[in-house]
């Protein structure tokens, strides 16, 4: 290769590597802030501050959803299969909310360690299936 081009190429490569390293370090330093939500384990270990608006995320525990009969109050637990967090919320839950579904709730931790949520968002996974397939799967499981 022509020496001038080689020199240019090396200069560009060095600049790119240094920039990538700098951005990598910045993101590593900010990783706490880039995470959208705290996991139940992080909350159990006291990493999440109290009385500050945070987000908590996890799977809704089976049979943990309690709905009030006379209001929109609802309480449920989310888990990352190691620890779990109780969440209380007043309002309409998203359509995809159900037991076993991943959710992200925004709110404040009180002194009991319960998250008083002001917003509940549903996560969904990257698996898509026609309803007939899930029906067939459920039938096969039941047998």
């Amino acid at each position: 290769m022509h020496p001038v081009r080689k020199k240019r190429m090396i200069t560009i490569a060095v600049i790119l590597v240094v920039l990538a390293a700098a951005i990598g370090l910045v993101m590593y330093a900010l990783s706490q802030n880039i995470n959208l939500f705290y996991s139940p384990t992080q909350i159990a270990q006291g990493e999440a501050p109290q009385n500050v608006t945070i987000r908590a995320g996890g799977m809704v525990v089976d049979n943990s959803v309690e709905r009030a009969s006379d209001s929109l109050d609802v309480a449920f637990s989310v888990t990352d299969y190691q620890h779990s967090v109780r969440i209380e919320y007043t309002g309409i839950l998203p359509d995809l909310f159900r037991e076993g579904q991943g959710i992200v709730a925004q709110g404040k931790l009180d002194e009991r360690g319960v998250l008083i949520a002001s917003e509940v968002l549903a996560k969904h996974d990257e698996e898509y299936m026609p309803p007939e397939v899930t029906d067939a799967l459920e039938k096969a499981q039941a047998q």
Partner: peptide, 24 residues
């Protein structure tokens, strides 16, 4: 993959079969 996000991971990966059936 690096961070907790609301967005789900990729459905299509170069190394694995897609996690949806062919008619989709």
């Amino acid at each position: 993959e690096w961070w907790n996000t609301l967005h789900q991971p990729a459905t299509f990966k170069l190394t694995e079969k897609p996690s949806m059936p062919m008619e989709m």
